[in-house]
Nucleic acid binder design. Sequence first.
DNA 1: AAATTACATGTAGAATTCTGCATGTCAAGG
DNA 2: CCTTGACATGCAGAATTCTACATGTAATTT
Lengths: 176, 176
Amino acid sequence: MSLRHAVLGLLAMEPATGYELTRKFDVSLSNAWHASHSQIYPELAKLESEGMVEVVATGARNSRTWALTPVGREELRRWMVDVAPSRATRDESAIRIFIAPRLLEPADARIALQRDLDYAVAHREILEEIDERQRAAGGTAPFAPAVDLGLRVNQVMQEWLRDQLAALPAEPKSRR
Amino acid sequence: MSLRHAVLGLLAMEPATGYELTRKFDVSLSNAWHASHSQIYPELAKLESEGMVEVVATGARNSRTWALTPVGREELRRWMVDVAPSRATRDESAIRIFIAPRLLEPADARIALQRDLDYAVAHREILEEIDERQRAAGGTAPFAPAVDLGLRVNQVMQEWLRDQLAALPAEPKSRR
DNA sequence: AAATTACATGTAGAATTCTGCATGTCAAGG
DNA sequence: CCTTGACATGCAGAATTCTACATGTAATTT
C-alpha cells in the first residue's frame, strides 16, 4: 500500500491539488512510483475520510488544494521509520534491458538498446531542467536529492547502454 | 502485461520449472520485476494454452520443465523490438529515498537512510556472489550484463545514501 | 467569437497482483 | 523412523492498478 504514502510524501513537501499530484507523479516521482489520476483522486478521498489530509484551499475550476493533517504527517513518519520497505520493484525497462543484450540478434538488440539510450538521454534533459528550475527558484528545493539521485542513476544507465551497444558485433553493411 | 515477457525472457535463457522461475525472479530479476509463484504458475498455464511455452521434461515431485516454443520466442522478439516500453516503474524503496532526507527529523532520516544503506550493502554481496558463480561456471553467463548493471546502480545508490547521511545535521549526543 | 489546449475531477469494469491457504514429494539429519 | 526443510504446484478472495469513458472550466490562440 505505497500509493498512499507516496501521496502523503508529496503533500508533506507542499500542498497540492489532485491534478498537480498527478503531474508530480509523472515527473519528479516518475522513477519511483507511477500512478494515474484515476487512482489519485479516490485515494485522496480515502485519506480525507481517515483524517490524514484536508482541503486547505479551493480555486478555479473546482480545484481543491490538499494538505497533510498532523495525523497524516505522523502516519508518514511511522511508515518511514517503523515499516521495513518492500523491495518489490516493477520496472518494465529493466526487464527489457535484462533481455536485450543476450537474447536478441545483434540487429534487434541494437534497436532495443538504442531506444533505451535515446530515452535515457531525453530523460536526463528533463531532470536537468527540473534541477535548474529548482536552483533558480532558490531556497527550499524539496526534490533536489531525488533529482540528484535520478541524474546519477541516469548516468550509469547511459554508460551501461553504451557499453552494451559497443559490445555488440559490428553490423557488416551500414555504419551509421 | 510484462509478467508474461519476463517469464518468456527467463525461459529464453534456459528452460526452467515454475519453482526455478520463482527463485530467479527473486534473485537475478529482483531489481526489475517482482512476481510470486502464485502468479507464475497460472501464467505458465496461459502461455502453454497460447502455444508459447511447452513442457520439455518432467522430474521428481511432479516438476515440469518449461521451454520456449518458436511462437514464444517470436513473441518475445516482437515485444522487445516493436513495442515501446512502458516507463511506469514502481519501487517502494525509491519513494522512501525520495522522502527521507527532506521530510524527516534528522534522527528519523538517519534510521531510514541507514536501513537502506544496509540493504544496499547486503544486496551488493548477493550480486557479487552471483557474479562469481557465473564466472566460475564459465562460458555463457546469461545474466552477466544484468548483474553488471545491478552492481553499477548499487554503487551509485550507496554513494548517494552515504552523501545524504553525511549531509544530515550531526547528532548532538551520540557519535556512532 | 470560436476553437483549441490545459486544467480539474470523477466513475466503472477489466486486468493484474497480493495474501493466505492448501497439498504433496523428496532428501538429510537426528 | 520421524522430523524438518527445501522442492514443487496450485487456488480463492481481496486489494490494487489500468483503461476507457465522462464531464466541465479557464486561458490561449486563431
